[in-house]
Simulated scan of single mutants.
Amino acid sequence: MAVSIGFYRKITDWILSCDNRKIIFRPFQVEGNPYKSRVFLVGAFPHPPLDISLDEASMFAESLVNPELFDHLYGNLTGTKENIGIQQFIRWMKITLNENILCTNINVLQADSLQHLKQLKMANRADYEKGFTIFQHLMEEFQPELIILHGMEAVKQFRIQFYEHLVDYHASIEKIQHLEGLGVFAEMRFDNGKRVRVMACRSLVYYGKSGESFASFKNYVQKVLTSE
């Protein structure tokens, strides 16, 4: 998918720091048209951070909708165990359910670790808060039907960010293994009334090549997406 001029303007706002001097956000990754993605796969924050100069903004924007280009440009920097698990889960969704997942994060500010993200918060609160705001803009812009949160930190931050709008059927449950076994544990509605359901699973660092330990969770996902 070639990025149109209008959409490129949106992406530019989603990747630049508040002072427009640095590219510090990784808002999403998807294959092709993000408006056709029914499912958001959501982590806590994008990592590891990529060092991208302003004159590379156009290429970076294009890579966000072109996985082959992204892998060519940054694959040697993002081959973590978790990211490999994410790609394997995406592949399963594509082959089994013909779903094209959009990957994003509750806070799209790039960081090495959760501790690093907290340090970035102390150093520049405006950029840190913009990381949350961008995710909220992505939600409203693309309006997914299903959100899959992976990792307890993502669940925690999602509950905080959408507390006023979230109908959380199991708000007292804080263990990710228990939430994973529930299937849909919450839902919310966009301003136009469209419903989005919310599921959660363990960090995809544990997914491996085949995702055998996620078999029950994948069954829940399949039921949700094929029941309509």
Rank of each mutant, 00 (worst) to 15 (best):
I95P: 01
D71V: 02
I5G: 05
P48I: 04
P48N: 10
G32S: 01
R26L: 10
F45H: 05
K118T: 12
K130E: 01
G151Y: 09
E164R: 14
L166S: 11
G75I: 01
I52C: 09
I23D: 00
Y207P: 07
V39W: 01
Y207F: 15
Y35F: 11
H150G: 00
V167P: 00
A171Y: 15
L102K: 09
M152S: 14
D55T: 12
R159Q: 14
D55A: 04
L146H: 03
K121E: 11
L69C: 08
I106M: 08
V108R: 03
I173Q: 13
M122W: 01
L109E: 03
I90V: 15
F142H: 12
I24R: 01
I160Y: 15
Y207K: 06
H137A: 09
L50D: 08
M1P: 01
M188N: 07
M122V: 08
C18I: 04
Q115E: 13
F60Q: 00
S203R: 03
S227L: 03
L114G: 13
K94C: 06
N83I: 06
H150P: 02
K121H: 04
I147D: 06
K22M: 04
K10M: 08
P46K: 01
R21Y: 05
F135R: 05
L50S: 10
N107T: 04
E31R: 13
C201P: 01
N83S: 09
E187H: 15
F28Y: 12
P144Q: 09
I106R: 05
G183A: 09
Y35I: 02
F132W: 03
S4P: 02
C103I: 11
A61R: 04
A57F: 13
A111R: 02
E68N: 14
F60H: 01
Y74D: 10
E153L: 14
Y35E: 03
H47L: 08
F28S: 04
I95R: 13
E145V: 03
G151T: 02
E82H: 07
H170R: 15
I148P: 09
L41D: 06
E99L: 02
K118M: 10
E62H: 07
D13R: 07
E174C: 09
N100T: 12
V3M: 08
I106H: 07
L182Y: 12
F70V: 00
I134T: 07
F70C: 01
T78N: 10
I106P: 05
I5Y: 11
E31I: 08
F7G: 00
H72R: 15
V42C: 06
L102F: 10
V30G: 03
Y8M: 10
I84C: 06
